[in-house]
Design a binder for these strands. Structure first.
Lengths: 345, 345
DNA sequence: ACACCATGCGCAAACGTTTGCATAACTGTG
DNA sequence: CACAGTTATGCAAACGTTTGCGCATGGTGT
């Protein structure tokens, strides 16, 4: 309630001019004498006038806000991803004078309904979507309403038609496989999640593609999937993998969190990394550097990606380019200690 | 521009009633016949009416937004702290129907000027402050304008007078010291930062208090400080500490990031942890669990704290309690492998 | 001298709500 | 049946801005 309340009216009155003139003078574009413009700017500065966002939004339809919908996944970020992502976006948006707002999805509700609500109440000029699923209803909804947005990740069907930036998990997994294959590994495993996230499919595709390309019938692949945030079954699945009679020697994982669990379970079972098994992660979270023997993984440069996404969205907001932009980012392989030659036996 | 645009007027017209009546029916408080209320709610639902935030904000002065000012500290979160903090706030605010927005501080500008601007343009109903410094100008500015806010951390002078939640670093450091002292350590070091953050002072005070209380003249304390985000001089300072003739056997650090650097430098110098030196961190970041030999540290429950801060702010917004709330959270000591008995010599 | 145009400014409407006040309709009482 | 009291509804102002339009003013061309 402590409305500071210096309005355009105050500025105008202090100069004996009309509100309209003051508004135009500050806008800077309209036909206004240089003289008055100078005076108005000066007066505004002296009085401490700051334009009211709500009023401006009401008439212009532009809020200066970009929204990000966050699932409330129990406590905090299971995903270290989000921290970098949010600051990257914030940095990118601030370059264009916009702010980022987060809205948490209440436990009961669906992400889609939250997005629908957001679009309708005019809270945001544009939206950012993270964690796109294969048939993400949010993407389809926003495209249909032609509401400006940018997504991290692709849906299956349409690769264009909207602004997206994605990590090229396919080629990354090919690279990882080739590395391990070159090290003599023939018995692989993939630790993945059960949810239908597009990146899961992409990486699996890459892996299968690489395997097919070797045309080597001795190559085998086991898969262990568990719900993304279910630590318990995750650990169980990995144990199953590591204690199987035909234990794999090379383990690819969908993201570092899974790889770290693999390292832990391996340690518990007395398996040495990388002598007995090689493990490769994805994302290069901070812990990857410190968990022994150092996790070989892919750096996705998520901060910069998010910043670029902000730019994509702002461009599509300003209406300059009506064509959607798309960008595929190639992650960088970070070699550490968790991979090595296949054990001989 | 794709303004969905179902307004109150649409709802009213579809029922042949006035806008005012429709508004009141949806507000739910006013004297309205149960009959019309039912009809209006139903019509609104059918049409897909969602109240326009900007218009509502303009007249009511309430935006439904709470702001958080983020320093853009190079790339991403140097601070794992912020990730948890942001989601905690988001969760807490969503319970009350508010959203959190982040505004990054542009490189040139000061945090204070951003805050001033925020307060004036009516973007937010309230503000959240993080990383409070000893004489934080933001706190003083907001108190003086009696703008609703809640801060994580205290300024030096006033401990009441505004809503704050703080981690009790003083008693935590006493606890840490006592633990190490009981293990026979007599030669201590504190690795800290150069910035005048209040929590730095609090923890140092705690440490000095604990030392004084032993009344043991053989206890010594060395201090190594470096700029918070300057990795290089940080490493140098720590090296200096570890290679000194009278190398300390127990090292307390202001936060886990510093502790991890200590562990790294110790490893590089061939020092064993905890046999040669004990190291204790603060914050219990995810990496703490995985960095060998496991970092003994304090868990601050920052997610829950942030969520509670959201509650404090919302209460002060609703004007229920005009008195500021304050809360001191005691961090929980997490025992891992990085501390042990003092080496004999 | 006239018409004409460019320039600089003001008036007032509009954006979609909320809300104080007036008014209409209804209820019960004498 | 009149009156007061209650209840439900409508009218219109207000929030602070932007912007289309019109109106002066003064300069330029013929």
């Amino acid at each position: 309630m402590p409305d500071s309340g210096k309005t355009l009216k105050d500025v105008a009155e202090s100069l004996g001019i009309s509100i309209a003139t003051a508004s135009r003078a500050l806008a800077g574009q309209e036909r206004i004498s240089l003289e008055t413009r100078r005076k108005v700017v000066q007066a505004a500065d002296r009085i401490g006038y700051v334009p009211n966002r709500a009023a401006r939004a009401l008439v212009s339809g532009q809020t200066g806000f970009v929204g990000l919908v966050l699932p409330t996944r129990g406590h905090g970020f299971e995903d270290p991803f989000l921290g970098e992502f949010v600051t990257g976006l914030g940095a990118g948006l601030s370059e264009h004078g916009s702010d980022l707002f987060l809205t948490a999805v209440p436990p009961g509700e669906s992400e889609l309904s939250v997005v629908e609500h957001l679009v309708r109440d005019g809270r945001a000029d544009g939206l950012v979507l993270a964690r796109v699923t294969e048939e993400d209803p949010r993407v389809n909804f926003l495209m249909q309403r032609s509401f400006p947005f940018v997504a991290h990740g692709r849906i299956l069907k349409t690769e264009a038609g909207y602004n997206w930036l994605d990590t090229d998990g396919r080629t990354a997994f090919i690279e990882a496989f080739d590395l391990l294959y070159a090290h003599g590994h023939r018995h692989f495993a993939l630790v993945t999640i059960s949810e239908p996230m597009t990146f899961r499919r992409q990486r699996l595709d890459g892996l299968n593609e690489a395997i097919a390309r070797t045309d080597d019938p001795t190559v085998r692949l086991a898969v262990a999937a568990s719900p993304r945030f279910d630590r318990e079954t995750r650990a169980k699945e990995i144990q199953r993998l590591l204690t199987a009679a035909d234990r794999p020697t090379a383990i690819l994982t969908l993201f570092d969190g899974l790889a770290i669990t693999v390292l832990q379970e391996a340690a518990r079972l007395g398996l040495r990394v990388p002598e007995d098994i090689s493990v490769i992660g994805f994302d290069n979270i901070p812990t990857a550097e410190h968990v022994p023997p150092g996790l070989t993984t892919f750096d996705t440069g998520i901060h910069d990606s998010a910043q670029e996404m902000a730019g994509m969205l702002m461009r599509s907001l300003s209406g300059h380019s009506s064509k959607p932009e798309t960008r595929l980012v190639h992650p960088r392989l970070v070699l550490r200690g968790s991979h090595g030659p296949a054990p001989k036996n």
